[in-house]
């Protein structure tokens, strides 16, 4: 019997110090390459021997990918900025507290010290059938174990499922979508900028990927425009354990009021669909109306109209409705 001494199998490690060097390495190693940010998602895959990259490209030494800078009333956040830095940055807290709250709700203090905002949005799903190495659709197979008749699917989708019913686990993703953030993506061939709302992949388009990142691309920075600076924000993450856990349902919202009525709003929910979703049904109920209990309830009802729960997750429908209601009316009302 083979004796396994290592916590994970050997790989070749590269520690580039610039984005250009990292992109060249990504291009050179192609499918065998793995971009490593904080390692919280990565080492889980490697230790379980489910993913076995040959070349690990550690982005930790690239200083140009770290830090938060003010930019025309908005912010530019390097993808390798830690979640602790995002949660505690005075600029974020002052103008975009929604993102600070979201970053503070990620996992544990240790994980926030190590985990990065880029890794948080690009992380893989936590569906345990998929994480356990089962050959499901997302892993290239031809079945979804989580939608099977006796499956354990309490944490899975109620909206937008297409063969795969896994949900996106990111806490910062819905906040970034609500803030109209722009994701800056680079490859050896150049740069493209994608709205946060379009950054996350639907399984209807590509069931094997969580984001639009191609294998040779890196998310290098996130730009937050001035648009929602100091708006009325709401963030709530419901989880099984209060100490720390992945989300069951999370709501992130931004609202601008004018004369007691909602002038514009973004309401984004995660934990209910394969990607974080902007709930336009709720937004359209809300705009032009006062932000009160009855409008909140109407918006919440509109948001869950198309929901199709699985065997064990019907509870997510009223949970999502109520979180949207609370986001609209505010906590005290």
């Amino acid at each position: 019997m083979a004796v396994i001494r290592d916590m994970m199998p050997a790989f070749e490690l590269f520690r580039p110090v610039s984005v250009d060097d990292a992109l060249q390495l990504m291009a050179r190693h192609g499918e065998a390459a793995w971009a490593l940010a904080g390692g919280l998602d990565t080492f889980d895959w490697l230790k379980d021997r489910i993913k076995r990259p040959e070349a690990v490209i550690d982005l930790g030494a690239i200083s140009e990918m770290r830090g938060i800078t003010a930019d025309r009333g908005g912010l530019t956040i390097g993808a390798m900025t830690t979640l602790t830095e995002v949660a505690t940055s005075p600029e974020v807290v002052e103008s975009f507290s929604l993102l600070s709250m979201a970053a503070f709700h990620v996992a544990t203090p240790q994980i926030r010290n190590q985990g990065t905002i880029g890794g948080n949005v690009a992380q893989d799903t936590r569906c345990w059938y998929y994480r356990g190495g089962w050959p499901c659709y997302r892993a290239g197979g031809n079945i979804c174990y989580a939608a099977a008749p006796k499956a354990m699917n309490r944490e899975h989708c109620i909206l937008g499922a297409k063969r795969c019913v896994a949900v996106n686990p990111s806490d910062t993703a819905p906040a970034l979508i609500a803030l109209d953030a722009q994701m800056v993506i680079r490859s050896a061939g150049g740069e493209r900028v994608v709205a946060a709302e379009d950054f996350f992949m639907s399984p209807a388009v590509d069931i094997t990927r969580m984001t639009v990142l191609e294998p040779d691309e890196l998310l290098t920075e996130i730009r937050i425009p001035e648009t929602w600076s100091r708006a009325r924000f709401y963030f709530e993450k419901v989880r099984d354990r209060q100490s720390w856990d992945f989300s069951l349902v999370t709501v992130a919202s931004a609202m601008r009021m004018s004369g007691g009525r909602v002038q514009d709003a973004r309401i984004v929910v995660n934990g209910v669909a394969p990607r974080p979703v902007r709930v336009t049904e709720a937004e359209s109920v809300l705009i032009g109306s006062p932000a009160n209990e009855s409008i909140g309830l109407a918006a919440g009802e509109a948001a869950i109209r198309r929901a199709k729960p699985l065997r064990h997750n019907d509870f997510k429908r009223p949970l999502m409705r109520n979180l949207i209601r609370r986001a609209i009316r505010g906590q005290e009302a």
Partner: peptide
């Protein structure tokens, strides 16, 4: 930090 999820090389 979690030493089980940090590379010594860093």
């Amino acid at each position: 930090v979690l030493s089980c999820l940090a590379l010594t090389a860093e």
